[in-house]
């Protein structure tokens, strides 16, 4: 009797493993195809895109790097992402602090405003913004665009920071204030050190979102010299769509840094995803 239930549990476990493995393969198969084809030349790919490469040939990578202008692209991406993170961290953590403590009467109104701002389409403000920026000659200006991306990411970042501030016991702040600490002292000496994991989480979530962004960057960052890595990569597709190996090498160049970064910060990233959506 006992051995039968045991066998049944084993069977069930093997079955659930099988399903999980099938889904893992679904997630990874296209990415593996990218990797193996990045080492092949066009004839090899035409013959069979599913085969192993005959040799590890890195010439596609060199060509792709230069053709997509990735040196400029990665610098621009870093600049854009870095600036946006700094703007969001400062603004959203201060706002999160105020909203977490119910410090103002308009708290509810501001919360609802940010909830709506989080869910409205980018197209609702994109068109006037574009033509105004064009008027001031700011199309292609990375700093202007980082303010736009900061605005887009502000609601979620504010809500995340609010959650982190809410987890700090109120007594800490009260006792510091009784001891004569100013709000500035409370923020810099007590609050910010305590919400450091929150600041990292927000940086990671916003950073990946900005690094990957398409609609706003492609609309506002015109001109090859202002392209982010993503846009430089995209520009390849028009000229090199008959050179599959080069496109795949370029894709690896786009995928690898993100995957490495993700593996380094996975805890914070998953934490951000979860505290942004799990209610309980």
């Amino acid at each position: 009797m006992k051995s039968r239930t045991l066998a049944k549990t084993r069977q069930k476990s093997a079955f659930s493993h099988a399903i999980l493995i099938i889904f893992s393969i679904t997630a990874l198969a296209p990415l593996s195809l990218v990797l193996i084809n990045s080492f092949k030349n066009q004839t090899e790919i035409l013959r069979n895109p599913l085969s192993w490469p005959k040799q590890l040939n890195f010439s596609n990578y060199v060509e792709a790097w230069n053709a997509a202008n990735l040196s400029t692209g990665f610098i621009n991406s870093l600049l854009l992402t870095g600036t946006t993170i700094v703007i969001v961290l400062i603004a959203a953590s201060l706002a999160g602090y105020v909203l977490a403590g119910k410090r103002i009467k308009a708290e509810k109104g501001v919360t609802i405003y940010f909830m709506v701002a989080m869910t409205i389409p980018i197209q609702l403000f994109l068109f006037p913004l574009y033509f105004v920026l064009a008027k001031f000659n700011l199309i292609g200006n990375i700093f202007a665009v980082s303010f736009i991306l900061a605005a887009v990411n502000m609601p979620l970042a504010t809500f995340l920071m609010r959650t982190f501030f809410m987890n700090i016991p109120g007594e800490l702040e009260e006792s510091a204030k009784i001891d004569g600490a100013s709000t500035f002292d409370v923020l810099t000496k007590i609050m910010f050190p305590l919400v450091r994991p929150g600041l990292i989480t927000v940086s990671v979530i916003v950073g990946i979102a900005v690094w990957n962004e398409f609609l706003i960057t492609s609309t506002f960052l015109q001109g090859q010299e202002n392209f982010t890595a993503t846009l430089g990569f995209l520009s390849l597709n028009n000229t090199y769509n008959t050179n599959q190996g080069l496109m795949m090498a370029a894709s690896v160049l786009m995928i690898a840094p993100l995957v490495i970064f993700f593996l380094l910060v996975q805890k914070y990233f998953i934490d951000g995803l979860v505290s942004g959506s799990v209610k309980g």
Binding site: F23, S24, A27, L28, P30, L31, L33, V34, N37, P49, I208, W211, N212, F214, T230, L231, F233, L234, N237, N241, Q244, M247, M248, S251, M254, I255, L258, V259, F262, Q266, F269, I270
Partner: peptide, 20 residues
Amino acid sequence: IFLFPYILAPTTNAILWLNI
């Protein structure tokens, strides 16, 4: 593993499906 496709840029994902 399940999150890999999620963290990649839509641009990368679209282009890789389009091509390969």
